[in-house]
Design a protein around this nucleic acid. Sequence first.
DNA 1: GCAATAGTGTCTATTAGACAATATTTC
DNA 2: GAAATATTGTCTAATAGACACTATTGC
Lengths: 256, 256
Amino acid sequence: MITVMSPYDPSAFPPFAVTVDLVVLTVRRHALCALAVRRGEPPFQGRWALPGGFVRGDEDLEAAAARELVEETGLSAEAGAADPQGKGAHLEQLATYGDPERDPRMRVVSVAHLVLAPDLPAPRAGGDAHSARWAPVEDFLDLTSAPEEEPAAPLAFDHARILADGVERARSKIEYSSLATAFCPPEFTVGELRRVYEAVWGVVLDPRNFHRKVTGTPGFLVPTGGTTTRQGGRPAQLFRAGGATLLNPPMLRPEV
Amino acid sequence: MITVMSPYDPSAFPPFAVTVDLVVLTVRRHALCALAVRRGEPPFQGRWALPGGFVRGDEDLEAAAARELVEETGLSAEAGAADPQGKGAHLEQLATYGDPERDPRMRVVSVAHLVLAPDLPAPRAGGDAHSARWAPVEDFLDLTSAPEEEPAAPLAFDHARILADGVERARSKIEYSSLATAFCPPEFTVGELRRVYEAVWGVVLDPRNFHRKVTGTPGFLVPTGGTTTRQGGRPAQLFRAGGATLLNPPMLRPEV
DNA sequence: GCAATAGTGTCTATTAGACAATATTTC
DNA sequence: GAAATATTGTCTAATAGACACTATTGC
């Protein structure tokens, strides 16, 4: 006999676990890197995975993501348009993954979040994660077009797919938003911002046209008055992120 | 005493219900319209709501959304890049809503999906929804900037927020993708496509520049050879959607 | 004829991208 | 001085948007 559930009767529903997984991206040494933790338990014991964990019974999804972020990295997160000057990292919801087979133990729906952070000291292994590390996203994804290549460090569960979606979101979003500044420290130079774009897109940009473009886009950058020579060469002006979230005109990714 | 769950032990997790909700959009009579159903049970009995329902225990999220769509509208859905010629409507995941208070009865996490469909005959009331209707999105949202205005038909739960997010997704996505064709029948004219953009964006576009732009964007439109006079005036060429999903150059929304 | 819609052509202001030239530091 | 990076300027090809004009239907 088949029992038809009343569609809005919440007393009869299949049991789900809900988790948040985090795609935490940063730029280090000219490469787009993701945070991974090593799994200490089955399944996929010993494999790298995205940080994450269960959503608590009285906790909002975004709060759960922010809590996991603090536990895994010590980073405080600021969601969405809040925090323009960037004490905390940028956090936004990415997508939700609910294939019935994605966790071999039971039905788990994972709400993935994307975090963009400035270059950080080595991650602290949070909670019971045996270890944590930053690694170039190519190590996990094999973004080369050679189909026979396997990723150097295959991720557990469907986390490679989630990471790929997060990377693609970051790559497209820095085109039309000021989000690239989330990868920079609170004060940064035009050259540092350009190296963020170059690392995330994997391209080389003309420093002169880039400079003219970003300084000419209203609301993108605000000069702080200071200068720095930390890149060598002529001292560069320091900027902080302006209030604009949507860039008009957008930055154009070359060779599309 | 506080019990700390092992972060990856799925035998200890708070109970969640997982639903899918649908933002189904179409263009009728020059207006962007959304599908709403009238709730037959508490809470919010008698109020309009987005169609949706529980995800089954062995069902993928997207499959659940497609199933609900068929049940509520009879529309078949084709996800993502599949089905370029459009028997089925376009379906994509929108976002996930999990505020602990969003359903007064218990913890419900809803994975909202966005559906874009051509103009359809009157919706058939599906399942136990007492009635269903298309209504201009402004009826539910109050997109006028008058803050004292209340929506004509306030939606149940957090569905106004979900609908607003879906409308914004549709508005931005037709800029840089060929998704506007999802609002058109399998064969359509440039003028019909232009009226889609005008309705979704709420603007008036120059027919001459629009024509030059869309016919000059590679992969956007493919002429079928036929013509029609269903709009009156000089017969217009018929087109179907080309294979391109990303438009380059993008369509530009005026007065941003 | 008039009204309506479709489609082409032309002009102009703006812009993306190439690249020359200059400025200011460290070594 | 050489090398590195920053910053400004100039040129050119492409483009968005305004809008004149022609084409083809129904009435």
